[in-house]
Design a protein around this nucleic acid. Structure first.
Lengths: 193, 193, 193, 193
DNA sequence: TATGAATGAGTCTTCATTCAT
DNA sequence: GATGAATGAAGACTCATTCAT
């Protein structure tokens, strides 16, 4: 009764429940597949509640994607923090990436957002930015080309993790990053080897 | 009249037209967004034809995905042929990957299928198989780990190319592959630790 | 069975039935009050048929209004014919107007279209044109001012007939028109003649 | 705070604000198009207030129409006063009608009520009464027939003014009324027959 | 009493699928 | 076999009305 009563008159919580349900469903079935009915059922609210809080399904979608984006931004901030403390070495990054992928939830969120970015210009810009930020960790030490390649590889691991339903071994990631990045402070296109 | 007569007499061609239209549309608008009406319009056949040749929309979808899959398999066969002749060196693979990505059409098809694979178990199995085949080119020479990492990187390039609307430079791909694969004939686990 | 079978596959008849039902309902409940469901029920067709034949409710509304407009144009043509033969005398016009108003159906259609014209610029233009045509019958003989006033009076009779559920007596109409029009060939504002 | 406090303490004012907003909106968008939300926004009161003061939307509509009716009754009273002083001559009436139509606001209100009367029996009765009152001004002097015709003409001017977005010239109205009414003190049926 | 959150009925619209022709 | 008309289920969205607070 407390729950029911509370839910009934806690608009902020209800809004969060709806957005959360939408975000979950976007991850599960895709950004275009969600419906008011699905979201209402998942959030355990009546159908009308979904339109009460969001004028259009697009608005709801946008809000849900925003929370997914926020999650990724948070991840990125954590990465930044770890890198700031321990340096952007292959071992450090490999650990972060592996752990991130091991968290199925966040890995799937990453994938969902990137997939949604296919047809959403705004999300595409964000995805591009994330890719740049990732590359940014390596640029100073390893040059633009290798940094970009490392970011590309890390993005690739998201899809591989999805295919395998399991993250790549940290060891494999580390090995690959080490190979891609080469020795610190190399020329972008190496002359001496 | 010739056209009409022809079509009437060539059900196989009509079926191909429908499947082809569906495949195009899947790439353009996504696997879930196609409708009988869209396909009929694109294939320039009457609405009824789409249900005449395929009992359900899902059947049509499946057939269309099958042709996209076949395209990818063909690509893979070409890769295999090139590799058989020139070896699976970073330079060779980088060229193939770059050229494949530069062909927007095939790059989009790749992406569409991988995206569709998110929620289609059969396609997922295929995607896994492609990843394995890709890795297979390198396993003998470089060991399982590095081979897998190389495949992961190549998959990553598909998404990066989509984000940038341009393929990665062949040079960057080659550099990365060279780094990932390291020296030929290494142990799966690296010697020194 | 013949009826059912026929209706089932006589698109033109079905379309007419739908438009006719919509027109009836517009007259009865107003242009903004019609719904697909009302029209479908009145036309005795399934709900889907109304959207099969008209992409949007607005399209259906427009088609229905078009038939009402056509009815009025036809009326106007008849008036023109009668006037051409017998002249635009008060007696002749009074007879026409009275008979038109006595036909409740057409009187209500007039009223419905004029009412719909309140918020539909296209219909407003038409209503203006009708008013002009009506005035046109008298202009040559009686000058612009009196002609316009006669048209205004005739329009007024539509509303009075609606209020009274009965047309004004032809005698009253004739008397009023005669008074409004005065003697033939008057000056509108006379200076020279 | 003053405003809020005031409103809180003056339910009657709030009720008036709601009814006034509803009346405005009826004139603007039609009697059937108003919603609680629209009225609340226009009256600048919370949504709940609209249902607090009126059990149903129909009740609110009725109240709003009542104020519009009152406005018209007031107009009619003014007409009566002017007529009592200056007589119901064509010139006097023409001036009144023209000025009334020139006041777009009141002309639109007239039109809105007449339109609403189409499907509201109560309003229809009122409209009938106004028509009678209008005719009443002329009956004693000019007989029933001519008086009715004059009222019909005046009603016609409302619609013409709406079509033209401008009132008829007072001169035209006067001319028409003079013609319709003929000489004072005629028999209902004209003398010669 | 005043507020606005809550709910579901009803609206337009799309479309897979069926089936008469 | 080929066509497109037919149908209803389902989706997005609006809003009158109720009622907790």
């Amino acid at each position: 009764m407390v729950d029911a009563a509370r839910r009934r008159r806690d608009p902020e919580a209800r809004r969060r429940a709806i957005v959360g349900a939408a975000a979950e469903l976007i991850v599960e079935v895709g950004v275009d597949a969600i419906t008011h009915r699905m979201v209402a059922a998942r959030a355990d609210v009546p159908l009308g509640a979904t339109t009460q809080y969001f004028d259009t399904l697009d608005d709801l979608r946008a809000a849900a994607l925003k929370t997914l984006v926020a999650q990724i931004d948070e991840q990125m901030a954590e990465v930044r923090a770890v890198v700031a403390e321990h340096g952007a070495t292959p071992a450090v990054l490999a650990r972060i990436v592996h752990d991130g992928l091991a968290d199925a939830k966040s890995a799937e969120a990453d994938r969902a957002v990137v997939t949604a970015a296919i047809s959403d210009p705004q999300l595409r810009a964000l995805a591009r930015r994330w890719s740049s930020q990732l590359a940014g960790f390596f640029e100073a030490e390893h040059g633009d080309d290798r940094a970009l390649a490392a970011a590309v590889f890390i993005n690739g691991t998201i899809w591989q993790a999805h295919l395998d339903d399991a993250p790549l071994p940290a060891r494999t990631i580390e090995l690959a990053l080490a190979g891609i990045l080469g020795d610190p402070h190399p020329q972008t296109d190496s002359t001496t080897d």
